[in-house]
Design a protein around this nucleic acid. Structure first.
Lengths: 201, 201, 201, 201
DNA sequence: GATGAATGAGTATTCATTCAT
DNA sequence: CATGAATGAATACTCATTCAT
């Protein structure tokens, strides 16, 4: 992962992390200013433009940076587990915990290209978004293979399998958004797994 | 329907429709200007402020206007059908067709409160959004009753039932976003129904 | 007097009184809106323009209306008194009491044409202002005659006499402006009279 | 002098001087636009807001800048003279000459806090205005001391002394406003001095 | 490379004035 | 005559971007 940001210099990463800091401070990405980003990153405003050509590029690339990291972390979580169910639960748990941080952009990615109303700073990143979505599908299919091998789920046409996983995931993320108790999230994870298994049998 | 906008005057509706026109022209709501809205509505810029106090209020209330309409239309579609499966398919078909128009805000609603990164113009409408989500849940549970009565699905705990419906729906909407062939959408609808039924049996 | 507003219709007077009400509510004349005036006058906004051609004209003519009234009242006060000193004190007392109302525009008049920084709404009324100043000078000279007749003051060149009266008056008004105790005002009146008499002997 | 603006940066002063230029062009401070100020100062519009937070702040601080300068210049004039009468005449002459420039804000200061109808941009500067008035009173009392020492005037209660000086000054300024011949001003100065001396004996 | 002062294009909002009713 | 809904010109202020140091 981070393939598409592989060349990010140290300074660029400082900028991404500055934006992350702002997101965690509950700043809305549509309203953040270049000055705020520079300050959060601990650099001068002009320096931003030595590494990016527009503010929107900064934000878009930060979003992808965060998504890539998030995906990589989820994969790492799953790799620590051997069985299908444990992998699923590990991923769902990780996502739930991260959602408390504000910088989990997973839901953003899941909505993918959303009918023209994507945040403006992502308009330019459609292509990149699609690539990320394909990566997600790849991960999902690999995970499904594990389930099939264990006999927990049944192999089905790949389009269907992907739709099941993403449906369960999106429904889960929806529960994680907005105010809720910790138990709600845990229960939603439980249900998401149940949906997965039932829909794939 | 349109319960919460019932008092909208003729002029307010003209403004909503102006915004709808802009959305259909693929204008991004975060970037639309007051002038554009006035022009699209066929009125003077100052007139906007006789009916709304800020531009963001215009947009937020338009979004709710569109969502209310959309929901009402979906309900109307479903009422024309007698059986659970037909109701589901009618709703999914309607959503698919509408998604080609750009003014289907369903996906927006489905994301609900999304972790602080909602479009700024919706910040003020959180409460309203929650109310709409509850309305959606009510519709879903009524629909589920039909399915149970017909023996197509099994009654389960309501939280689970809602999560299943919304998961299937969100996964479906995800497929409708972005470039795709007509057949993809039809197939996605088929799969969404399948997910529903399997997960509720 | 009120000679120059003689033709004011009932409605025009309602408008003047509306403005007076606003002034008493501590509204700044430079910032008052036509809507506020119409509302304070209890009439429709459009009606204003049946009697005046611009908002600034409304304000300027109101100012003159108020000044004329104020001057007339001061003269009436003085006519009730027989002796020079009593006339002076009656005028000073009246001014002090009125100053607590916010609609005493005397100080405005006293500054007369003030180096290009008059309130914009008075720009058009320069001519009228000069006429009012002449009226004031006439009153002052008549009052001085009384003093001379009584032997309290000495007749001097009229330019000097006028300057003395207006100086004493302006210095007095300055004390009435801003926060002060009741006693300060009374003492300032005493001093103003003292200045008058000394300077005219 | 300029004590209270001591920290003004070079750019701030350029802005003040821009406003001064506009005043001399007979622009009304209540109607001047931010763009005009920027242009007059020879800087970009945005730059204004790097040094001031609102347009009104610019104007208010300019007024105090001009008043401070004016007061300092008057004091300097007076210090060049040894005797009471010469000091008075020097100050009156300086004021008369400056009044032809439009940027003499002395009359503004003399009116001090004027019952709610101050120009809006000065609303925030009331406190500052009071401080300046106290400075004026201090100067007046020092000047009076000279006169007392020379036996030209008699020491009286300080409140009375101040009121005499300011009355004479305001009456004088009133004559300087509006159209007049040069001789009128000279004569008014002569009279103002006469009022002073008589009222303080 | 790094900086941040300077810039001016861009926009929401206000409000005097008009005019159809 | 009276009204107030409609209008759009006018303007303060923001902020992405540049560039001299």
């Amino acid at each position: 992962m981070n393939r598409m940001n592989r060349n990010d210099s140290e300074k660029e990463i400082a900028i991404y992390e500055g934006v992350r800091k702002l997101i965690r401070q509950n700043v809305n990405l549509s309203q953040v200013t270049a000055s705020e980003i520079a300050q959060a990153a601990g650099i001068g405003k002009g320096t931003l433009y030595n590494y990016f050509s527009t503010k929107d590029e900064i934000i878009a690339r930060t979003v992808f940076y965060l998504i890539d990291q998030h995906l990589a972390q989820i994969q790492a979580c799953m790799e620590c587990q051997k069985h299908f169910e444990d992998k699923c639960r590990a991923a769902l748990d990780f996502i739930r915990v991260q959602a408390n941080q504000r910088d989990s952009q997973l839901h953003l990615m899941l909505m993918g290209i959303d009918g023209g109303q994507v945040a403006p700073f992502l308009r330019q990143g459609m292509e990149r978004m699609r690539a990320t979505m394909q990566e997600v599908e790849r991960i999902v299919l690999m995970l499904a293979e594990t389930g099939v091998a264990e006999g927990v789920i049944v192999r089905q046409e790949s389009g269907y399998t992907v739709q099941v996983f993403l449906s369960a995931l999106m429904g889960y993320c929806r529960c994680l958004c907005g105010p809720r108790k910790e138990t709600d999230g845990v229960m939603a994870a439980q249900r998401a797994y149940q949906i997965l298994v039932k829909a794939l049998n």
